[in-house]
């Protein structure tokens, strides 16, 4: 069971996608997409992990065995893009509520 990190990432992604498929409330769908993004971030950070290593920062570093820095840099990109996606989806949800008066994605008014 050394791959627990990847199993946790797979569980997060599955839970998020299942919630995005089954929930009706638009805010809950946005939360589900955010959970999927968290799972992807966890997977990216877990990919670069090396055993008995420290963060790749030389300030007062106790040893020179360091984890891989590129997945961490890409995780930073991923976090910011996740934030942008969530902000856009929430603003569209607010716009839909303003226009139709409901946040239910299966309401008949939204389908016309």
């Amino acid at each position: 069971m050394s791959n627990l990190v990847f199993v946790a990432a797979a569980m997060l992604i599955t839970v998020g996608l299942y919630a995005a498929m089954t929930r009706r409330n638009l805010i809950k769908i946005v939360m589900a997409v955010s959970v999927v993004g968290s799972g992807v971030n966890l997977f990216l950070v877990g990919t670069g992990y090396r055993e008995n290593s420290i963060a790749p920062i030389f300030t007062n570093a106790p040893s020179l065995a360091m984890v891989m820095p590129t997945p961490q840099a890409l995780t930073l990109t991923s976090i910011v893009i996740n934030l942008a996606i969530v902000a856009m989806m929430l603003s569209f949800a607010m716009k839909i509520y303003q226009h139709y008066g409901t946040l239910d994605s299966r309401e008949r008014r939204l389908k016309k």
Binding site: S2, N3, L4, V5, F6, V7, A9, A10, M11, I13, T14, L17, Y18, M21, T22, G46, T47, G48, Y49, R50, E51, M68
Partner: peptide, 25 residues
């Protein structure tokens, strides 16, 4: 929907065990 989610989870689980062991890239 649960069947689709279960297939996806099994696929991701197989992926997570087929890549390198965690901690040894």
């Amino acid at each position: 929907k649960p069947i689709v989610a279960a297939i996806l989870f099994v696929f991701l689980l197989a992926m997570s065990f087929s890549i390198h062991p965690a901690g040894k890239p």
